[in-house]
């Protein structure tokens, strides 16, 4: 015990101020140092800190998810998952795992289970998965697998010139992102959408494009990621293959 532990405890208290009493009660040199903390000030600083982290780390990239969870989002800083963040949670490990853990465990959030994971996956694709892949930045494969499980995929390689995301959508995600308290109905039929980065313009950040797609297009993307030739596409989709290939070529998504 000593300085390193005291610093670690201080950082933990910023996220879990309720632990102060127990740490002080443990006594010893560490307890004596931590006993100098003003509990009222700690509570205020911790609340301020949690808001700051939610706004700065996730507010822009996961605006719908954080608004939907509101107070829960601020509690994420206290979760063990928070410590899995890389930098300011650039890979979204903390928010994805903590959100899905909480949804699984908290019966009060049962109503959100049907649509919030889809909103989270959508925001992940738009703000993390595609932009980071396009910039050749590290991806947390476990996070990506969990957030996209049963909902879609993110494909690269083969004949794809750029990463392409595919998501099956059942909810009006744009409306939910704007107002998660909105009572919305699921879509009449699930929609398949593909996502990809627009071609970069020098000096500008390329936006992510989202287009509704026939199932064949999503399947064609999968085949292209596996390196399928035009002939293979033709065998798989007949006349629809030409249309899919034309669309993908028009957006610069097919290499070769």
């Amino acid at each position: 015990m000593g300085l390193a532990d005291q610093m670690r405890h201080t950082e933990e208290l910023m996220r879990r101020p309720g632990q102060l009493g127990a740490l002080v009660s443990a006594g010893g040199d560490d307890g004596a140092v931590l006993a100098t903390i003003d509990a009222g000030r700690l509570a205020a600083v911790a609340a301020n800190h949690a808001r700051h982290v939610v706004d700065r780390w996730w507010g822009r990239r996961f605006s719908g998810t954080t608004r939907a969870l509101d107070a829960v989002a601020r509690e994420l800083v206290a979760s063990d998952r928070f410590c899995e963040a890389v930098g300011e949670d650039v890979t979204a490990a903390a928010i994805v795992h903590a959100t899905l853990d909480r949804l699984d465990a908290d019966e009060e959030l049962a109503a959100a289970r049907v649509w919030l994971p889809e909103l989270l996956a959508w925001e992940y694709l738009l703000a993390v998965g595609l932009p980071r892949r396009a910039a050749s930045e590290a991806i947390d494969e476990a996070v990506e697998a969990r957030v996209l499980e049963g909902r879609g995929s993110l494909l690269t390689g083969g004949r794809l010139a750029r990463p392409v995301g595919v998501l099956s959508i059942r909810w009006p995600l744009g409306d939910l992102q704007d107002d998660p308290a909105l009572e919305v109905e699921p879509l009449d039929e699930p929609e398949t959408r593909v996502f990809f980065m627009a071609e970069a313009v020098p000096g500008e950040v390329a936006p992510v494009l989202e287009v509704g797609a026939a199932d064949q297009l999503a399947d064609a993307v999968s085949l292209l990621a596996a390196g399928a030739s035009d002939a293979t596409l033709g065998e798989a989709f007949g006349e629809d293959a030409a249309e899919a290939a034309s669309f993908l070529r028009a957006h610069g998504l097919i290499a070769g």
Binding site: G2, L3, Q6, M7, R8, T10, E11, M14, V33, T36, H49, H52, V53, R56, W57, C83, A85, V86, G87, E88
Partner: peptide
């Protein structure tokens, strides 16, 4: 101050603890 505890990045600049041991380090 520091922005790291061990290998972890902090979202805040943790100032030096106000102890002799911290001053020595």
């Amino acid at each position: 101050a520091t922005r790291r505890i061990g290998d972890r990045y902090l979202d805040f600049f943790m100032p030096i603890l106000l102890t002799e041991e911290a001053a020595d380090a």
